[in-house]
Every structure is written in structure tokens, then in C-alpha cells.
Simulated scan of single mutants.
Amino acid sequence: MTMTDAEGTTDPDDIASFVESWTTMWRDHDGERWPSLLHEGAVLRNPLGELSRSDLPGYMAGLVAGIADHRISPVSWAATSDGVFIEWLMTGRRGESAFEIRGVDQFRVSDGRALEGTAYFDPTPLLAAGSPDATTPKFDIQAFSRDYDQAWQAKDPDAISAMHAESGTYVLHVAGLPAIQGREAMRVAFASSLANWRELRFSFDKAHYGDSFYSWQATMHGILAQPLELGAVTIPANGKPLALSGIDVITLDENGLIASKESYFDVVAAANQASRP
């Protein structure tokens, strides 16, 4: 099976088996197991570059060889509509200095193997020391994330869209919705989304930061002002308070604006809440 003739799936047994295999592979530092986790043609991307299926055994061997006491272990994981997120912690030593890196791997999975994957983490501890450009952030990404959250809390589509790049993209990974491109198109989409809700607020859960990206996990609370149609799922506007857990993966451009935003929400949980007596 190749990437062009497979669709993502989240069969619970497949996902649990994939996470277990991923965990034991990193625990045993056995990069030769990577191909068994991937479909032919699969590509994995991280802040250091793009890796093919055949590149990964050597990549892991080099990574482990260069870091004393190297260890990667999962902190938590969650199935998505077409795969899985694995939150992880890497620890090790470079010389006399111990370090840790927290990150998130996002995989699209079919039949127990990944079609593609993206790793989000701050690579600074893995880069050679001595270059200020390699270690000094271009902008305060944590302050940006808080400001962006406040724009959503204020329910201000103009303020929200102003923090997106003019040619940026937004994808809501629900029911196969298409990507939205361009600041004005996103402003219209965000305004429409906000209008679907009343008494809307967001409660922060946790965040992870890299040099030019961050993931922001939160729970959206609100009451639907009108029925919400998401493919085959329709959530009724019956006056019931709903809570949707979700995560945004946000990448910034060189100007500190959002180049891409990918959002994942548990809409099935919300539909179940709305259907309860």
C-alpha cells in the first residue's frame, strides 16, 4: 500500500498497537524497526528536516550516538480523526550538561502504520553551540501565544486574523473540511465560527513551545446558537452547555505571524453531550 491509495483511520486497536510499537522502538533504541511502522512512501518531518522511511534507522542511530543517556518516552497520547498525537519527553546529556526536550509527534495512520508524520519540538539543544543565531529566538513565542488566546477570548475576528500571515493557512481537521487560505478568508471563517456560539469561552490546558511553532491545548465551553453541521454529524442547538477538548498546532513565519494553524477538536464528545437527556 502506498500513500496515494490509503486513507487515515483511527481503529482503536491499530492506534494502541502503533503507540506501543513506537514506545518500545525508542526505549530499545532500535531504529531498524522504523520501516515496520511506516507505509511505503511515508515521510516524517521535524524541525531539522524531512526523513524518508529508509532514512530513519540511520537518523535514530546518529541521534542516540551523539547524546549520552538518551531517552524518549511518551507522556500521553490521543487518537485524532485520522491518526494519533503522541506527547513525549526526551532527556540526555551533551558533555556535562543535561537537557530535556518536550515535543509532540502527529501521525496519520492506516492499518496500523503511519502514512506520514510531523514532529514538533524545539531543536536548540540538539544544535551545535556557539552560534547566537541558532540559539536566540527571533520573537517571544510564548507572549504571542497568550496574545492570540486573548484575541479568541475577546471573540474579535479582526484581532485574531491580524495575527495570521497574509497568505497563511488554516485547517480544521473535522469531517474532511478543506484548508482556508488568506487572512481575509480566515477572518470570515473565524467570524462565522464565533457566531455559532453564545457564552463562549476557552480554558487553557497546556502548551508546548519550539523555536517557530507551538501547540496549544484548551477546552472550548459554550452553548450553540444554531445547529452545527460537521459532515455526517450534526450537533443540535438545544441550549445545553457543551465542552470540546482540542489542540492547535501553530507555526509562525519569519515575521512572527501565523503561517499555518491546524486545529483538532473532539466533536464526537460534544455530540454525545448534546444528545444526553
Rank of each mutant, 00 (worst) to 15 (best):
N46Q: 12
Y209N: 08
R94Y: 05
E116Q: 14
L230F: 01
S263G: 13
A68H: 03
P236H: 03
E254H: 10
R146N: 12
G95S: 11
D55V: 02
G49S: 12
D158F: 03
E87G: 09
G256Y: 04
P123L: 03
D205A: 10
F190I: 15
W88T: 14
V19R: 02
G58M: 05
R108K: 13
V64C: 04
D156C: 02
Q150P: 05
A79G: 09
L242T: 07
V267G: 11
S215M: 08
I258W: 00
D156T: 14
L252T: 06
Y209K: 10
V84P: 03
P57C: 04
N196R: 07
K240T: 10
R53D: 04
P132C: 03
D133P: 02
H173N: 13
A98H: 10
V64G: 06
F190Q: 13
D133F: 03
A232R: 14
L200W: 03
E96H: 08
V188H: 07
F107C: 07
Q273P: 02
L51Q: 10
H70A: 13
L63A: 11
S110L: 01
V19W: 01
D140K: 05
E87M: 06
A78F: 02
F18N: 11
N196F: 00
R108S: 12
E262W: 01
Q226R: 09
S17L: 03
P277D: 14
S167I: 10
D55E: 09
A270K: 01
I223V: 13
P227R: 03
I72H: 01
L115W: 01
E50M: 07
W26A: 02
A271M: 07
G117K: 05
S73E: 15
A162G: 13
L242W: 00
L127D: 15
L200F: 06
I180H: 05
G49R: 12
V75P: 08
H70G: 10
A68V: 13
H221N: 12
H164E: 09
T169L: 00
L127N: 13
D69A: 11
P241Q: 03
V233N: 07
G256N: 07
G239T: 12
A162M: 02
S260G: 09
M1I: 13
P241A: 04
L230C: 13
R113S: 07
R108H: 09
T251H: 06
W216A: 10
T2D: 13
A128V: 13
F144G: 12
S54D: 15
T219Q: 06
V19G: 04
R53L: 01
Y148T: 12
G256H: 02
L51H: 12
G239A: 10
T80V: 06
Q153I: 10
L228Y: 05
P123M: 05
A16C: 06
R276F: 01
N46Y: 03
I67N: 07
S212M: 09
L194K: 03
A68E: 11
A119R: 06
A165M: 06
S167P: 02
K206T: 12
W34T: 14
I15E: 11
A134Y: 04
T136K: 08
S203C: 08
K155H: 12
A16Q: 11
M60P: 04
G58P: 05
A243V: 13
G95Q: 12
G49F: 01
W152R: 06
A243D: 11
V268L: 10
